[in-house]
Design a binder for these strands. Sequence first.
DNA 1: CTGAAAGCGCTTACAG
DNA 2: CTGAAAGCGCTTACAG
Lengths: 338, 338
Amino acid sequence: MSTSTIYDIAKAANVSIATVSRVFNNSNSVSPKTKKKIMEIAGTMGYHPKAYAQGLARRNSKMLMILVPVISNYFFMEVLAGIQDKLLEYDYDLNIHNLNSGNSSDINDQVDYVVKRGLADGYILVSVHQQEAYWEQLKSYQIPLVLIDEYHPDFDSVSVDSVEGSYSATKHLIDQGYRKIALISANPSSKPMKDRRSGYKRALEDNGVVVDDKLIIVDTNDYRDGFTEENGYNSMLKILKKHPEVDAVVCASDIQALGAIKAMQDEAKRLPIIGFDDLPISKFLGLSTMKQPMYEMGTLALEKLIQRIKRKDNLISHTVFSPELIKRESSVADSVTV
Amino acid sequence: MSTSTIYDIAKAANVSIATVSRVFNNSNSVSPKTKKKIMEIAGTMGYHPKAYAQGLARRNSKMLMILVPVISNYFFMEVLAGIQDKLLEYDYDLNIHNLNSGNSSDINDQVDYVVKRGLADGYILVSVHQQEAYWEQLKSYQIPLVLIDEYHPDFDSVSVDSVEGSYSATKHLIDQGYRKIALISANPSSKPMKDRRSGYKRALEDNGVVVDDKLIIVDTNDYRDGFTEENGYNSMLKILKKHPEVDAVVCASDIQALGAIKAMQDEAKRLPIIGFDDLPISKFLGLSTMKQPMYEMGTLALEKLIQRIKRKDNLISHTVFSPELIKRESSVADSVTV
DNA sequence: CTGAAAGCGCTTACAG
DNA sequence: CTGAAAGCGCTTACAG
C-alpha cells in the first residue's frame, strides 16, 4: 500500500492538511500555484485520499452498490449495462456485490450485513426475492434502495409483468391451434416463476384448455434456480418420452429453451417452442421469446435510486413493464419441421 | 441509514464502547451475559459497525476487489465462480468493480483511482491489458494484486497460452487437409488477440501454408472488443462473399463462432469451424473449441492473492495453462454437410 | 486564499 | 472481564 497520507503531502508542500484536502475536493478556494505544487507532490508520492478516511469524515461515500444473487445471466448483464451508462451522468462509484448462495449464511443475512455496514450511499437489489418479514426489517433501516425484478410496496421498484408475459407466450401458441402445451419451469418457488406459471395457467383456462399439472415440468436440480441449458435439455427429454401428446412448449427462459431445442434435435423431433428473455443468441437461433426491456430497467432503477438518495421522503414509485412478444421461427407452425 | 453508533449501544447497555466493539469482533474476553445483552440491544437498534470507521481504525478492510473491463462474458463468469468458491475458505468480502470503457477516463486512470483509494486489501485484475509504463507505476504502489488473462513479470499471474491454443486449433484444421484457413479476429490490438493471431500464423507456416493476411478478418466495429455474435456473423458473410476459396475457419472466440455459424446457415453454406472458450452453449451446438480452465484460474488467482497479502515479499509466481482442444461436430470433416 | 481544531465511528494496546 | 484514551486519515465549519 502506498503509505503516504495527507500529512506527508502537507509537510512536503509546506501547507496545512486542509489545503491539501481542498485541492483533492476541487475546492476553488486554492491558488493555482499551490494547487499545482500539491498535485505534483501527490503525483510523485502516489498519494490519493483513502476511501475509508473520506467515507468516515464525509458521512457519505459517493458509492452505489448492486446486490445480485446470480451475476452470470444475461438479464443481469443488460440491466447492468443500463445502470452503468446512466451512471456516467452522476458522480458515483459503482460496485457489485454477488450474493453467494454457496455461502453458509443465507441471502437475508448477506443483504443485511452489506447494507448495515454502510459502504454505499444506496443499493440496487436485482432479482433478490425475500420473505415479507425481511422486507419489513430492511425497510426499518431507512437506507436508499431500489428493487429490480421484484415488487414490494415499501421500496421503489422496476419490474416486468411475468404473469402477462407468460400469458402472451402461451396465448401465442394457443392461437396457432396447439392445445397440449407443456411448461418447462425453473425453480417453482421463486417469485418470477410463480408468476410465469400462473400466466401460463390463466392463458390455458381463458381459452378452454384444461390445465394438466403433469405438463408442468420441474427439474429437481436447482442449480442456478434451474435457469440452465441442462435443465431445458432434461425437461424436454422428459416431455418427449413421457408425454408424447404434447404439441407445443413454453419455457421459463431462453437458456432452457436452447437446451430443449438441442434435446429435440438429438431425438429428431420438433415442437413449437417459445422462451422468455430474448438473449442475443436467441435471434441467431430463431427462438421466439418474450423480451424484457432490461437495459431500460437498469437506467430507470438508477434514476430512482439517485432521487431516493436526494430526497428520502419522496413517494415510493413502481414501474412495471410489459414483455414484448418476439415471433421467430421456433414457434411458427409452418416453419416447424423435423 | 440506521443511524445508531457504537456509542448508542454502549450507553443503552451501560458499558463502554470498547466492550461493544469487542463483542462485534468476537473477542472472547467478554462475559456471556454482557455479550448477550449487547447483541440484543444491537439487534433492536439495527446496529452494525460501519465499514468506513472499521476500515480506518483497523487499517485493513478484509475486502478483496475484482477489476474487470467486461463483466458480461463467459470467461469472466467462470473465473468469478472459481474465485467465489475458493473465497468461502477465507474471511474476506468480495466486490466487483467494472472498469467502464464508456467512461471518460481510460482504464489506466480507473485502475489507478480504485487501487489508490484503498477500499480493498488486495485486487484481482481480470483481462486488464495495459502499456508497460503503467504496470511499472502500478508496481510502485506495492499493493497486493494478481493478474488473470495477462502476464507481467512484476505481478503474480494466471493465464492461458493463447499462442499455443490458437496454434492447436489451426493445426487441427490443417490435419484434416484444409489449407485455405481464415481467421475471424477480434480487436487486433488486444494482447490475447495478438497471441491468437500469431499462433494461427505459426501453425500455417510450420505446415507449409503461406499466410494470406486478407484471410484474417477484422470487423471495424469494436464493441466489446469484437467478441460478439454480430462480429462473427458479419465476418463470415465477408468470407463467403469475398473469399470463396476459404475451406475452414478459426474463430477468436466461441461467441463469434456462433454468429459465423448462423451466417453460414443463412447462406446455406457449411465450412468447418472452431472457436475458443468452450461456452456451455457450445456443447449444445456441437462447436469445436479450445477450452480454458477458467474456474481453476479463478481459484488459483485467489490463493495467490491471499498469499501475497500475507507475505508481500514472497517471490512472484506465474501460472500458464494450456488450452485443451475439444473436438465436436463443427470441425470434423465428415460431419460437415450443408 | 489558508490554517487550527473538532469530529466522523470505530479498534486496540494499556492498565486494572 | 472491562474501561479510558489515543489514534486511524480525512473533511469542514470557523476565523482570519
